[in-house]
């Protein structure tokens, strides 16, 4: 019974509802105060766990603070100058960007169709979903180890053994060739995240009213047309969220290249976070690493928000 009323009523009343929303949903001043109060916990968390430490880091970035002695002398922009003059920083930047963009595109392209399939009924659905989700569970340290055995460039490596037994292919230098190593790290990153992002899309798929598809079916739309005309546009909010997460997490990536290739061969899979850890923790040059962190945070912020803007705009066009 609800099938017919819901789409028509929401469709027809949408413009009026939008106009009315501001006034009626906000309510009187008392309600407004309560509304604002709902924000307080998040703001407190934000200020104490992010703003204060970040400001402290900002201060340290202008000092020669070592991370061991409480003394810190103001040295101006020296740390920033040093970072900008360091050639190994550039190599870290290249792979970090490549990884972030690569995983974002690939995971998005794979997770949406996967979510659509996982949403259908089939035998063993729960087990399959769990298996897809599993790579998000254990720590990256152990997954990095497992993959380094699988992708070992030696003839005794797991993948190389399979390739030579089944196809007679000679040992492939998965992790010891620059291009292949970059490719391998990105593929493992995709493997680790696709399932969880598919689950995220799955949650959003649930909010698409079944009636839309029924109406489309009556109009004679093929499954393909349904996907592009209904599913994809309605998944846009999910895509905004998911791609923002992928991109920012990709930029912050540390564990995976660190355990799988340790940044190698050479600097092929070296990341910015790795140099952050090496200078800050290993070398104890906390001032320098704070400067790096500040620049990095700004860069991630700019990239992340630009991307958010673009995807939201695309999303709005569809909606």
């Amino acid at each position: 019974m609800t099938t017919l009323t819901t789409p028509t009523s929401s469709g027809a009343s949408a413009p009026t509802a939008r106009k009315r929303r501001r006034r009626s949903v906000e309510g009187g001043w008392k309600q407004i105060t309560i509304n604002r109060a709902f924000l307080i916990p998040a703001i407190v968390v934000f200020v104490f766990l992010f703003v204060v430490p970040l400001l402290q880091g900002l201060y340290w970035s202008f000092t020669d603070f070592t991370g061991y002695s409480p003394e810190a002398n103001f040295i101006g922009w020296d740390n920033y100058v040093q970072i900008l003059n360091d050639p190994s920083m550039l190599s870290g930047l290249t792979f970090t960007l490549l990884f972030a963009v690569g995983t974002t595109l690939l995971v998005t392209c794979l997770a949406i169709p996967l979510a659509v399939q996982l949403n259908k009924a089939f035998v063993g659905r729960n087990v399959v979903r769990s298996l897809w989700f599993f790579p998000a569970v254990p720590s990256m340290a152990i997954l990095g180890l497992v993959w380094s055995y699988i992708l070992s460039p030696l003839p005794s490596g797991v993948l190389n053994t399979l390739l030579s037994n089944w196809f007679g292919i000679e040992a492939v230098s998965w992790l010891s060739d620059n291009t292949l190593a970059r490719f391998s790290v990105i593929m493992v990153g995709v493997w680790a995240q696709t399932g969880w992002h598919a689950v995220l899309y799955l949650a959003y798929l649930q909010s698409i009213p079944q009636e839309y598809y029924e109406v489309a079916k009556i109009d004679g739309a093929s499954p393909r047309q349904q996907f592009f005309a209904i599913t994809l546009p309605l998944l846009m909010p999910a895509m905004v969220v998911s791609s923002f997460l992928l991109l920012t997490n990709g930029l912050k990536v540390f564990d995976l290249p660190y355990t799988l290739t340790n940044g190698g061969p050479g600097f092929a899979t070296y990341t910015i976070t790795q140099s952050l850890v090496v200078t800050g923790v290993g070398q104890g040059e906390y001032g320098l690493s704070s400067a790096l962190a500040v620049m990095f945070t700004v860069a991630v912020g700019v990239i992340g928000f630009t991307q958010l803007r673009i995807t939201s705009r695309i999303g709005r066009r569809f909606a």
Partner: peptide, 20 residues
């Protein structure tokens, strides 16, 4: 405010550890 809050997860955790 919403976009400001997002700054919260672009900060690499390694950089706020010692101050926290």
């Amino acid at each position: 405010l919403g976009s400001l809050l997002l700054v919260g997860f672009i900060i690499p955790p390694q950089s706020t550890m010692i101050p926290l």
